[in-house]
């Protein structure tokens, strides 16, 4: 029986998540830098523990269009994860990848959409491998799914996942970038039994 309740999440788990955020963002930065063939710096990630009232506005206004990439997490733990990008960051990344001028802001075409999925895949993989190496567990992910829609609507998906065992959600925010800052938001949603597995493997007692 799962003991985990997000509302009683402790300091240590917070620190662990911060570390996963740090290592994951580091891995992601290297991956993005290789992909775009340019130097990319990273800010220290910020971790927030938010209520449902705060979540829809955590990354932008509720109705602002954002990009959401969703993957299911499999193998030793189950659950899902999401990576969110603001529209200007998504355009910036795609333009660089496609060799277009920075200010190109036409609607994404099919090619752009698969490029975004791939970016999401790489970035999510960076976080997952951080989690995997910290917990010594095998963690794999499904193919990425993409949605470009209102921030609150996309965030309803993690909210519902978290809603099944509490009234809060955890958000890891990372800023990458050189001249232009790319803001990415990462949400890890282990299912309730997997929380226990993660914490146990890290030696954290509830």
């Amino acid at each position: 029986m799962a003991k985990f309740n997000l509302d009683q999440v402790n300091e240590m788990y917070f620190d662990v998540l911060k570390e996963i955020g740090n290592i994951g963002a580091g891995n992601a930065t290297t991956a993005i830098s290789n992909m775009l063939n340019m130097r990319v710096d990273m800010e220290v990630p910020k971790i927030e523990f938010l209520t449902f009232q705060e979540l829809p506005t955590a990354i932008s206004a509720e109705e602002e269009t954002v990009v959401g990439i969703y993957l299911e997490v499999e193998s030793d733990i189950g659950g899902s994860m999401m990576f969110l990008l603001k529209m200007e960051s998504a355009h910036y990344l795609v333009n660089h990848l496609m060799g277009r001028p920075d200010d190109y802001a036409e609607e994404f075409d099919e090619m752009d959409l698969s490029a975004i999925k791939e970016i999401g895949n790489i970035i999510s993989g960076s976080y997952l491998s951080a989690l995997s190496s910290m917990t010594k567990m095998v963690i794999t992910s499904s193919v990425p799914y993409l949605a470009i829609d209102m921030a609150a609507a996309i965030l309803s998906v993690p909210a519902i996942q978290f809603g099944q065992y509490g009234d809060n959600a955890l958000l890891i925010q990372t800023e990458f970038g050189d001249d232009v800052k790319i803001q990415g938001f990462f949400i890890l949603m282990p299912d309730v039994d997997s929380y226990d597995k993660i914490l146990t493997s890290l030696g954290i007692a509830l």
Partner: peptide, 19 residues
């Protein structure tokens, strides 16, 4: 999100970005 309220005319009640 996970909230409710009431409203009387002429006021309007809204919720943003239902997914």
């Amino acid at each position: 999100m996970a909230d409710l309220n009431i409203c009387k005319a002429p006021d309007m009640i809204t919720t943003l970005g239902l997914g």
